[in-house]
Computed example of a mutant assay.
Amino acid sequence: MLALAEEVKAEGAAGIGDVLTTLSRDVGQTVHLALRSGDHAIYVRKVEADQPYRMASRVGMRLRLHCTAIGMCVLSHLPEDELDSVLASAGMPAMTPNTITDAARLADELAQIRARGYAVDDEENEKTIRCIGAPVFDRTGAVRGGVSISTVTFLVPREDLLSFVPALQSAARSLGTLLK
């Protein structure tokens, strides 16, 4: 985690913070930036929305890749052999009744994510939490992690969350220019 935090500091921390703060302000929701670390991703930045609730997530928290919006964005852009290796190592445990635990079903979902450019975690990692995520690519075009917008299901309908996709994708592109 320390290496990721140092990397983010060295790679335009002020610019990264500005992008995430602007995104959170524009959509009125909590946003996260996570970078891949082996078979997981790790939250390196979080901007909490001005809401009456707080997300349990925190900087330094590890994310499973198969059941989070950021994680699925990462998986969707890995070469097939690397994807297979990650899934074999990390597994695909059910975190909620909505978690995809079947490899063929996950492969279909990853193809859809690649095609549309964003992922949806619809209570797959945590009950009552719905997120959208977009992949963040570095300057070489390699997927490094992702950025997400997180909401609580009882306050933000899915359709409202999906209306934030253009802002999310714009933020992901901006973040990519700040990473090596």
Rank of each mutant, 00 (worst) to 15 (best):
P135M: 02
I16Y: 05
A5N: 09
Y43T: 04
I42D: 01
V86M: 07
C73Y: 05
Q112M: 11
M1C: 06
V59M: 01
P135G: 07
T99W: 08
F137W: 04
A90G: 02
P97R: 07
V120K: 05
T22I: 01
V120I: 15
E126Y: 10
C131H: 03
E124A: 09
R158N: 02
Q112D: 14
E11S: 15
L162M: 03
A69P: 12
G133L: 03
R62Q: 10
G141E: 03
S37T: 08
A111V: 12
L63V: 00
P93W: 13
V136A: 00
R54C: 05
L161Y: 01
V44P: 09
N125K: 02
T101I: 14
I129P: 00
R45I: 01
S148W: 06
M92H: 02
R36G: 10
Q112E: 15
D160M: 08
S89M: 10
V74C: 07
A13H: 11
Q29T: 00
T30I: 09
R139E: 05
M92D: 03
M72E: 14
H66S: 08
D138H: 03
G145P: 12
E7K: 11
R36M: 13
F154Y: 13
S89A: 15
S170E: 15
I70D: 02
Q51T: 13
M92C: 01
T140Y: 04
A56R: 10
S174Y: 06
P97D: 11
E109Y: 08
Y43G: 01
A10D: 11
V59F: 01
G146E: 07
D39R: 11
L65W: 08
V165T: 03
M61E: 13
S148D: 15
A49R: 10
